[in-house]
Write a protein that binds this DNA or RNA. Structure first.
Lengths: 118, 118
DNA sequence: TATTTGTGTAACGGTATGGTTACGCATTAT
DNA sequence: ATAATGCGTAACCATACCGTTACACAAATA
């Protein structure tokens, strides 16, 4: 198949996103691919520490690595985030519900103030 | 203020979502508030284990607890998920980009097959 | 009052995280 | 050939996580 449908583990994605440094790495890669060293230089922690974060991100398929000379270019792969997004989808309705509740509350308060029964 | 704008730690939310059991607890609470014991009975692990997951969820403000007789009712609070959602927002554009690339690819393949130059 | 029920916490153990320094190994530059 | 650069991995450490069993304690029930 030319366009195989790949499903990534939601588990690995959520787990990878748990660490703020890893999220920051992803945020960085939104601006474009970068070699590992350059990524590391953007953070106050050691290069091996970043290397390990990159390994986790690779494991979660959130980044793709390709060798380019003596560099390892890292590229963002947003695909697994879709799973996260669709998990969240179920909750969006609640935000709307809360907004509706707030609206109802405000309106009932208003009704009180103006003395209207309903 | 009657409706203070509360900002929760994105950090705690992402961290809480890292565990599949905790996500499942949230999924369960979408159906309505439940006492701790009933939540625990829905899982194959011990009650204290669930109790600790609930503590983490509380810490992340993803659930609210209120005492009701000898029960502790847990209610979903989707609020902190907004932060997760807005982090994700930055990545949605990439999915669309990928879809566009796919579309462009398919169209160019089609063009080849039909011999059309564009 | 004595007991059962519902729930959190303490203490403990195994494993994963997240960081560090030391090292190994390609690849490029001298 | 030798040195420098870029990067992953190994070994190690401290701390957090996730589970367990034992316990404490308030609220409902007998």
């Amino acid at each position: 198949m030319r366009h195989p449908k790949v499903t990534y583990s939601t588990e690995a994605a959520f787990q990878a996103l748990a660490d703020p440094t890893r999220r920051a790495v992803l945020d960085l890669l939104r601006q474009g691919s970068q070699p590992a060293g350059q990524i590391a230089r953007a953070f106050p922690i050691s290069r091996p520490a970043i290397s390990k974060h990159l390994r986790l991100l690779r494991r979660a398929h959130l980044v793709q690595e390709r060798r380019e000379g003596r560099h390892r270019m890292y590229q963002l792969n947003p695909e697994p985030l879709k799973a996260v997004d669709s998990w969240l989808e179920h909750y969006r309705v609640f935000w709307k519900a809360n907004l509706n509740n707030l609206k109802a509350f405000v309106e009932s308060e208003y009704a009180k103030e103006t003395g209207k029964s309903e």
